[in-house]
Nucleic acid binder design. Structure first.
Lengths: 175, 175
DNA sequence: TCAGCGTTTTAACCTAGGTTAATTACCTCG
DNA sequence: CGAGGTAATTAACCTAGGTTAAAACGCTGA
């Protein structure tokens, strides 16, 4: 079965206003979401109260909290709508069961997971090998569009630095 | 078809001595490897000549360079045997084709990719939210076995710090 | 045994980025 | 319009970790 067909048959529309959470770190979650409209940030809340941004998610992307839906553990991060959003919610277990029995769905899942793995490898590379200034330059190069929809505070927390440090970098000053 | 069966039918034995490369950053590569014996490090060589360790790979793990085999681009990292190693080499394209037509293979690939994605998410979390000292403690907790097979230099480069810094951390001194 | 080589430790000094706090620039709403 | 709130900038100071270099600690192999 085609994934689009599956989503039409099994999906449920969900709408969120900007500022609302789709789910929160610590809660249970068993769904997967297809983003039709809007912009989200996935973020971690650390022990010391600091907030770090895991990723930004926009139209066409898929939202899921792997450890939550697979291991049935509490969500490891929170998901917040930065813009008014429209999604389609699909029960993960049910989709997964269908995937195990349907080659076409299976192909779709494979492709998505490969894309995800590649994205995460790239991010691993950037944290491992590049300094904050270079990471910022790469972000500007590869997703210039995103930058206009996101606050500089969130960009900083995505790069793994503070807003103060990002401001310094932008203006070519040293610490 | 069962993955084990597939590997038996299509795999080729490969043996490496410690210190030999399975492939090198920049080269082309179209295979996937199942590690039967040995220990490897996957590492990046950065512009400034520095070496950073992407991951360690041991018995039971699978080796692949996603961008190389999927996008047919040069390898993004190098793979070095730290111990004498025995692997089975499988042509990626051929396995992938079979996967697209075989539900059982497909399930195996899905499971592997999910495991990979989870591993990379965990690493992303650690770089984003934890300092070097905490990353080191977590490593000791979660893979105490690995530490004994690996040089402290490599552990440091895996944690994203220098060997000097790791020595300081171990002995509770500040910079 | 010792020479030679890689790994680890130590020390002195340096720098990217963190912290705190004050200032300024925008918004939005009443 | 002005008040209040968030986002961005700036400055002063601090710290984790980098850099360089020198010693100490293994090894392994002749």
């Amino acid at each position: 079965m085609d994934i689009k067909q599956y989503v039409i048959e099994h999906g449920r529309q969900v709408n969120l206003a900007a500022g609302q959470h789709l789910f929160r770190q610590g809660e249970m979650e068993d769904a997967l979401y297809f983003v039709k409209q809007g912009l989200f940030k996935a973020y971690y809340l650390c022990q010391d109260g600091k907030e770090l941004v895991k990723s930004f998610i926009a139209e066409g992307d898929v939202i899921t909290n792997l450890s939550a839906v697979f291991e049935r553990e509490p969500c490891t991060f929170s998901l917040l709508a930065l813009e008014p959003a429209a999604l389609v919610k699909v029960d993960f277990d049910s989709l997964y069961q269908h995937t195990l029995d349907d080659l076409e769905l299976s192909r779709f899942m494979l492709a998505s997971l490969i894309k995800l793995a590649q994205k995460k490898e790239r991010r691993e590379y950037e944290f491992l090998c590049l300094d904050a200034t270079t990471r910022y330059q790469q972000l500007m190069q590869h997703q210039p569009d995103l930058l206009h929809r996101i606050t500089q505070n969130d960009i900083a927390r995505y790069l793994g630095i503070t807003p103060v440090a990002l401001s310094r970098i932008k203006h070519g000053r040293k610490g």
